Amino acid sequence: MTFSIAAQVGDAFGVAVASKFPFVGAVVPEVRLGVGAVATQAMARVSYRGTALAALAEGLDASVAVEACTTPDEAREHRQLGVVGVDAQATFTGAECMDWAGGVCGRESSGGYAIQGNILTGPEVVEAMESAWLGSAGASLTDRLIATLLAGDEAGGDSRGRQGAALYAVAPGAGYDGCGVLADVRVDDHPDAPRELARLLRVNDLLFGRPEDVQPLTGALAEEVSARLARLGHGGDDVAEALERWAGEANYEMRMTPDGIDAKVLAALREETA
């Protein structure tokens, strides 16, 4: 019912998944800081997530984590599983999964990945996903995950169509108030779920990302920002204080910095006052 990737970039782990199945984000992905990422699908068994992560937390290999899930399960041949740990990865496709079904896993310098899918248009889906993952080396985990998912969708994806998608990723100190969540984004029922997921991920990044490409609030830029803020009802002599007030109202507080204005916040301000 699904195609997914579980992956690692340094100390960040995540899963991205899409399917002609609603609420897929409630079933397939599970990620734990410092431990790894798991995707359970086909005739998914949700308990695989906890079993696999517990094995990884004990220091066991990803392939052993897969065995811990599948060996005692009489229905294992109807299931699929991807597991990525700190130093190992594995993918499993049961012999009775609906065609086309299969997966691939590997490791690069930044970490491991496991890609798998079932009821796909063909093996080209998994092949396109692996190419997209490897070709995006150097980008952030969330950017790589969504690029990989979109590549699989563009290659044919789920042969039944589109409905649900999700992306869940963690990294130490990331997210709101440093909670560790890079992204927890779901599309539960949408005719173009993968692209809607990509749109929501951009919003997530704007709200929860860290400041980047910061420019000092001096000279012409300070004058521009002050004028735009005044049009939004946030005028005042101190442009930094006015920016802080507007940013809090617009939910951009995570991107605030005493060093100036974040590039994405500036773009949002310009768009709102265009």
Score class of each variant (00 low, 15 high):
residue 2 T to C: 07
residue 3 F to N: 03
residue 3 F to D: 08
residue 3 F to V: 09
residue 4 S to W: 00
residue 5 I to S: 04
residue 6 A to E: 00
residue 9 V to F: 15
residue 11 D to A: 11
residue 12 A to H: 09
residue 12 A to W: 13
residue 12 A to V: 12
residue 14 G to F: 02
residue 17 V to G: 05
residue 19 S to N: 11
residue 25 G to Y: 03
residue 25 G to H: 06
residue 26 A to Y: 04
residue 30 E to Q: 15
residue 30 E to Y: 07
residue 31 V to R: 01
residue 32 R to K: 12
residue 34 G to R: 05
residue 35 V to H: 06
residue 36 G to I: 04
residue 38 V to L: 05
residue 41 Q to H: 10
residue 42 A to K: 12
residue 42 A to H: 14
residue 43 M to C: 11
residue 47 S to G: 14
residue 52 A to G: 04
residue 52 A to C: 03
residue 52 A to L: 05
residue 52 A to N: 04
residue 53 L to M: 06
residue 55 A to V: 01
residue 55 A to G: 13
residue 56 L to M: 12
residue 57 A to L: 11
residue 58 E to N: 12
residue 61 D to P: 12
residue 62 A to S: 13
residue 68 A to R: 14
residue 68 A to L: 02
residue 69 C to F: 07
residue 72 P to T: 09
residue 72 P to R: 09
residue 76 R to M: 01
residue 79 R to L: 11
residue 81 L to H: 07
residue 83 V to G: 02
residue 84 V to S: 04
residue 85 G to N: 13
residue 86 V to E: 11
residue 87 D to K: 15
residue 91 T to H: 10
residue 95 A to E: 08
residue 96 E to M: 15
residue 96 E to I: 06
residue 99 D to G: 13
residue 99 D to Y: 05
residue 101 A to E: 10
residue 102 G to C: 02
residue 103 G to H: 00
residue 105 C to I: 01
residue 105 C to W: 11
residue 108 E to V: 14
residue 108 E to I: 09
residue 109 S to H: 05
residue 117 G to H: 08
residue 117 G to L: 05
residue 118 N to K: 14
residue 120 L to Y: 02
residue 125 V to I: 02
residue 127 E to Q: 09
residue 128 A to N: 09
residue 129 M to K: 00
residue 131 S to M: 01
residue 135 G to T: 10
residue 136 S to R: 08
residue 137 A to Y: 00
residue 137 A to C: 13
residue 137 A to S: 14
residue 139 A to N: 13
residue 139 A to C: 13
residue 139 A to L: 10
residue 143 D to R: 14
residue 144 R to V: 12
residue 147 A to C: 11
residue 149 L to S: 10
residue 152 G to K: 03
residue 153 D to G: 12
residue 155 A to P: 07
residue 155 A to S: 04
residue 158 D to N: 01
residue 159 S to A: 15
residue 160 R to W: 00
residue 163 Q to A: 09
residue 168 Y to M: 15
residue 168 Y to S: 15
residue 169 A to V: 15
residue 172 P to C: 08
residue 172 P to L: 07
residue 174 A to C: 07
residue 175 G to H: 05
residue 177 D to A: 14
residue 186 R to D: 08
residue 188 D to R: 05
residue 191 P to T: 04
residue 192 D to G: 02
residue 193 A to I: 08
residue 193 A to T: 10
residue 193 A to Y: 11
residue 195 R to D: 10
residue 195 R to M: 04
residue 196 E to A: 14
residue 196 E to N: 01
residue 197 L to V: 07
residue 200 L to A: 09
residue 202 R to E: 14
residue 214 V to Y: 07
residue 214 V to P: 03
residue 215 Q to V: 08
residue 218 T to L: 06
residue 222 A to E: 14
residue 224 E to R: 12
residue 226 S to T: 08
residue 226 S to L: 06
residue 229 L to T: 06
residue 230 A to K: 07
residue 231 R to S: 11
residue 231 R to G: 15
residue 232 L to K: 01
residue 238 D to M: 10
residue 238 D to K: 02
residue 240 A to S: 12
residue 244 E to A: 13
residue 247 A to N: 06
residue 252 Y to K: 01
residue 253 E to V: 13
residue 254 M to R: 08
residue 255 R to I: 03
residue 256 M to D: 03
residue 259 D to L: 09
residue 260 G to N: 02
residue 263 A to P: 00
residue 266 L to C: 05
residue 268 A to Y: 01
residue 274 A to S: 07
residue 274 A to I: 00
residue 274 A to H: 11
residue 274 A to D: 11
